[in-house]
Amino acid sequence: MSKVSLTRAVRFKRIQVSRHLRDKMNSAWMLFTMVIVVVMPLILLIGLYLKSAMLLNQHSIFHLLFSKEWKPLSGEFGFFPFIVSSVWVTVVALLISAPVCLLTSIHLTQYAKKWVLSIMHPVIDMLAGIPSVIFGVWGILVIVPAIGNYVAPFFGKTVSGYSILAGAIVLSIMIIPFILNILIEIFKTIPVELSEASLSLGASKWQTIKFVLVKKAFPGIVSAFGLGMSRAFGETIAVLMVVGNVTQIPTGVFQPGYPLPALIANNYGEMLSVPLYDSALMLAALILFVVVLVFNFASRLLIVRYERHF
């Protein structure tokens, strides 16, 4: 009898030890994953910098950013045309999607009935889930011919349709679900009491939205647009497919452009055969990374501050 209980005690002890050992191992692995993820941005930054250092040693960063000459074969790497194209595409895309997102988010959070929401939620989710290459295909099928055949002639221009505008339209649709989701969250966090107070003072529903909700949510709205912009800035394949990819400084929306991500994606094939070319493309990735990081950093900070407000 005593022998049985002894082995039981031993077994229990063993199980305890193995349980705690397993707990330690699991926790150690968890800690490890945390460390990896936290230092990840730093690793990305250092990795890209080391690869682009070769080019940075030869030319000053200022020269590289503002030079218009892009002749890899003779060692001239000026990023200015690509940066300008990127800015064009991003800004036009935001100009298109910002009003649509703002209006829709107000509609969905303030006016819409239950059934509208039950349709729009899956719609937004699906739009967010569509791969970017599909947007590109759709852009080539619909947007590019539409611009070439109808929009540009309307403004008295004859173009192929592969243009900044085509890229911006495709981009604007891609960032709509992204911005919309943030805006909906932001409008939801505003306490109901605030609009109730406004309504009880005799303001109409629209006045309440205009003077209370939007005003209160303003920092959140700005940061949502900032996040949308940084998303648009880095989008590659869809834009690459419709934007034309001509190395020039675009001066209008109907001209073709050549944004930074497209530059990286298009030239990976030959980058190892031309000296410094790979370094230049890595620098392009680094510029992209830093710009997106700064935009994200600022926008997120604004959102965190804003949420703490309530």
Binding site: P41, L227, R231, T236, P261, L281, A285, L288, L293
Partner: peptide, 13 residues
């Protein structure tokens, strides 16, 4: 922040 990094940057990295 990492979520916001464009996939082409991961590709280059």
């Amino acid at each position: 922040l990492l979520w916001g990094v464009p996939s082409i940057v991961y590709g280059a990295f």
